[in-house]
Nucleic acid binder design. Structure first.
Lengths: 344, 344
DNA sequence: CTGTTAGCGCATTCAA
DNA sequence: TTGAATGCGCTAACAG
């Protein structure tokens, strides 16, 4: 219990009022250079560090932003968190993090309450869109008047959203496969509750449709993002459509499982079967064969999220109209061996 | 700015004093059941939620714990964070997270200051041990009298630490390879600045030494945890020691790179060369061939860290002696194909 | 430029 | 079992 140094201790020692110290701390202009220097010295000497919570209480606002995330075991969410942290740091925000382990239960509510009562300045909602949970969210959040930025959600009016153009990612992957001359192009999707999974599938479907490919039903298998499900789904596709020529797999982990499944099934990649993944996890360049994939700008997503939130906060401080913004991050196709026709 | 509901609003509406409301909020025994029910109802009606920061300021302590972590792009740290969050949640703590992007710079200091001035109740230091940064830490933290738990660090007196028995992990992997009848057993290490990397190497070395294997120098290659470095290091080993029979790779990502490197070099795994990894990332069961590896109980590490910190906090609240605890989590060998002699 | 007064929302005394 | 007074550490608004 080293008695903590307060602003009053500094003031006393410096022979000024607490207010002056406060002004120095906050870099206010209305302090004489001499006084400022003097006070600053005392601050340093005493190793004084202001109590953020007292400041927040007094100011009625905080510089902590709340993050609600989930599924940190996957590449996407954890990578995004890193981006968020980086930008938050840059802009002087602290981060309070809550993870939802099972997004289906009602804990979103508790997480939200906790953040609200911790007086966070705003919230970044980085949880996959699940069912109607969102509806509940919108009511509550707007009710509270809490600035929020959502990640990877279908844009809606008056809501700030940062998203990767997942549909475009699906298009890129599928177009690439068509350009390589493949005809029967299947897909292994992510969980249908994830908006991102549905979008990637929509991109795949759009391209095939435009190319005049007929019945797509048989070419779809549903995974759950894990390598195990990729493996399973690939076997399923091969059983169902033995002459399938290429598969767009909705993330790299599943693609790894798919690669292994197809190989065990007796197919040589890419000679017999082409595969394109999604994410560009660092490992994917070292799969056998190296995986063609779609890279999302996930750090960018995190940065943007914090920036948009920051805009909202600023607008609010200036009593301006809060204009919702939407930031779209474009993905990029990375071509490696797994999708190149004519390589053994 | 929906004017926020305070404890006074509730009190007024309930016709009691703020104090009574406070008692209800904190589940104090000295409130009549009738009053309690009544007040509780008003609380619910108004949707009142107490201001955590005001409470903290008043009580002089908070229930937020600070996490300093880094390298969330790797499996270990992010997995550990999940464990921490889970247990924190369980015990009613909030989490404030700071990431160190380049542990070599002095930002540890800033992160620490930020957490301290946010009045966190304690800190979990989950950053790889780098050089003499730790010395600086110990001085400062003990000076502040802040409860801290360190992760994966060499235990030292009067310091709470949670660690995986990395050396034992190295032993398990290496013994397994010896039992399989391999003789020339190499290692690809992690970055030498990481304590965990050094420990794994020490385990490997100990077993080989005990088995009477002579000169080990040539059998060591240094990686940096990435698949790329695993690839590179494997080539290096094969060039240097063409008759090498097995390699213990200090994490699974590097093992993936090593697998690919060895295959490209013309070796068949495990026929020509056995490989054991470390981590048991979910993907490793789908490498080609499936990877034998050492599983760390990372969730467990996170849980334990929060528990130890919680003990410290409790002791402090009761003015008891703070006894530092050390929790050791034992790793487990997972045998798959990549290390089984006599399989093609 | 600097100090004074007041109060952020709550919990810890104490007294009733 | 309840309430009144007081203060946590800081800053906004006003004075001087």
């Amino acid at each position: 219990m080293a008695k903590v140094v307060t602003i009053r201790d500094v003031a006393k020692k410096a022979g000024v009022s607490p207010m002056t110290v406060s002004r120095v701390l906050n870099d206010r202009p209305d302090v004489s250079p001499t006084t400022r220097r003097h006070v600053q010295k005392i601050i340093d000497d005493l190793g004084y560090s202001p109590s953020v919570i007292a400041r927040n209480l007094s100011r009625g606002r905080s510089s902590t932003i709340g993050i609600v995330s989930s599924a940190l075991e996957f590449y996407g969410p954890s990578r995004t968190l890193v981006g968020i942290e980086r930008q938050a740091n840059e802009l002087g925000f602290s981060l309070m993090v809550r993870l939802l382990h099972n997004p289906l239960d009602s804990r979103g509510e508790k997480a939200l309450e906790e953040l609200v009562s911790n007086q966070v300045a705003g919230i970044i909602w980085a949880v996959a869109e699940i069912g109607d949970q969102r509806e509940w969210l919108f009511e509550n959040l707007n009710h509270e008047g809490m600035p929020v930025v959502f990640l990877n959600m279908k844009p809606r009016p008056d809501t700030s959203v940062v998203l990767v153009n997942n549909k475009q990612g699906g298009r890129l992957a599928t177009s690439h496969l068509i350009e390589q001359g493949y005809n029967k192009i299947g897909i292994i999707t992510g969980p249908q509750e994830w908006w991102e999974a549905r979008e990637r599938e929509a991109g795949w479907q759009e391209i095939l449709h435009d190319a005049g490919k007929g019945d797509l039903k048989n070419l779809i298998a549903h995974g759950d993002w894990t390598a195990a499900s990729g493996h399973r789904s690939m076997i399923e596709l091969l059983d169902r459509v033995p002459d399938i020529e290429a598969v767009f797999v909705s993330n790299d982990s599943m693609a790894l499982g798919a690669l292994q499944g197809a190989t065990a099934y007796g197919r040589t990649i890419p000679h017999d079967l082409a595969i394109v993944g999604f994410d560009d996890i660092p490992e994917s360049a070292y799969f056998s064969p190296p995986l063609s994939t779609v890279r999302q700008g996930l750090l960018e997503v995190g940065c943007q999220a914090v920036s948009l939130l920051s805009h909202q906060l600023e607008a609010r401080r200036n009593d301006q109209e809060l204009v919702a913004e939407v930031a779209i991050v474009e993905p990029r196709l990375i071509v490696r061996k797994s999708s190149i026709r004519g390589i053994a």
